[in-house]
């Protein structure tokens, strides 16, 4: 038990260090890159939700963006219609997304591999059309306009805070809480029993782990994390069908795989790559006479190539730590 305590304290220390680095960066970066860094943190939470799901159940979801949308819409609804604060919005998002995850998990526990992948993809496509079904609450095609608001006066009296910087400041604690929660969960007893289910369902069942219930719980936790990320993501200005397209789900998956699913630091690195690659590409080819058409699609092309290369060169790494620690 001593070792568990040590791990816990070590991960708290790591999390706080990361927080400090990010906070310092918020003073070094210009406004644009502050926004980009905030975007990294928002997507990172979404990627973490996949880390929970794929890393500990081996299943992949192509609909994680839809769960982010659930979080975004529920938080935006209470903020817009009930005048709640963004912090209340986060709590509501986590709750509603968990309920959604429960329903989804009960259905998904019976699906596997490509069936689950395809079904979650359809969910990602179908969910935005809910926005039109309940137009008065969810704002239809346009969506709901919300934002981070301005920092409270006790902060702005103390120091001048830019809008992007404030975005980042709100995102940092939310991302760190998610990070701390997920990293401790995966190393906890629960997390280890999830992995046992992933590696060998029958073996896990023989050892007294309730397989079906475990799968549902993994889905609920993953959805809760995704919902939180989605609520944060929506604060960038708008919660609408165009903010949570299918491509968002695919971006999350790509980030998770680039870093190695199941690995938390990998999730962070993957997200950084996905967010900054377009900037990097446009910087790299800025001197060359390349048509706009090429510039527009080059990042997507590179991301696809990176994704495929990762899988081909290191398929075991796709599933993260277990295999790596073996060799």
């Amino acid at each position: 038990m001593v070792s568990v305590d040590k791990i816990w304290r070590k991960s708290l220390l790591k999390t706080l260090t990361l927080g400090l680095v990010l906070f310092l960066l918020s003073f070094i970066f210009d406004a644009y890159n502050q926004g980009q860094l905030a975007l990294v943190l928002m997507l990172f939470i979404g990627v973490l939700s996949l880390t929970v799901l794929t890393g500990s159940s081996g299943q992949i979801s192509l609909g994680q963006g839809a769960l982010m949308a659930v979080g975004g819409y529920s938080s935006a609804s209470v903020i817009t219609h009930l005048g709640a604060s963004i912090w209340t919005g986060f709590l509501v998002a986590v709750f509603v997304a968990s309920v959604f995850g429960l329903v989804l998990g009960v259905a998904a526990a019976r699906l596997s591999g490509p069936y689950l992948a395809g079904t979650t993809l359809v969910i990602a496509l179908a969910l935005p059309s809910m926005a039109n079904r309940f137009e008065s609450v969810l704002g239809g095609d346009v969506g709901l306009m919300i934002d981070f608001g301005m920092p409270p006066t006790w902060i702005s009296n103390l120091i001048e805070v830019g809008y992007e910087q404030w975005q980042l400041w709100v995102s940092i604690p939310i991302a760190l809480i998610s990070l701390f929660f997920v990293s401790n969960l995966l190393t906890s007893r629960a997390g280890r029993s999830w992995k046992a289910v992933r590696d060998d369902e029958i073996g896990a069942a023989v050892n007294g782990i309730p397989v079906a219930r475990t799968k549902v719980i993994v889905f609920v936790v993953s959805s809760a994390v995704a919902g939180l990320g989605g609520a944060l993501y929506g604060l960038r200005g708008l919660v609408g069908p165009s903010v949570y397209p299918v491509s968002l789900s695919l971006t999350l998956l790509t980030a998770a795989i680039l870093g190695g699913v199941g690995s938390i630091s990998g999730a962070f690195i993957g997200t950084v790559i996905v967010v900054f690659l377009p900037d990097l590409v446009s910087w790299a080819i800025s001197g060359l006479a390349v048509s706009e058409q090429v510039t527009n699609y080059l990042p997507a092309l590179l991301t696809g190539v990176l994704l495929l290369a990762t899988i081909i060169l290191n398929p075991a790494g796709v599933m993260g730590t277990r295999h790596r620690s073996k060799h």
Binding site: G58, L250, Y297, L301, I311
Partner: peptide, 25 residues
């Protein structure tokens, strides 16, 4: 090096990568 779940999942991800590449191309 694979579990059964993994064996079914990796080609799915690969096909998504191929989709992304074809669309970008």
């Amino acid at each position: 090096s694979s579990t059964k779940t993994l064996a079914a999942t990796i080609p799915v991800i690969a096909s998504l990568g191929i989709l992304a590449i074809l669309q970008a191309l």
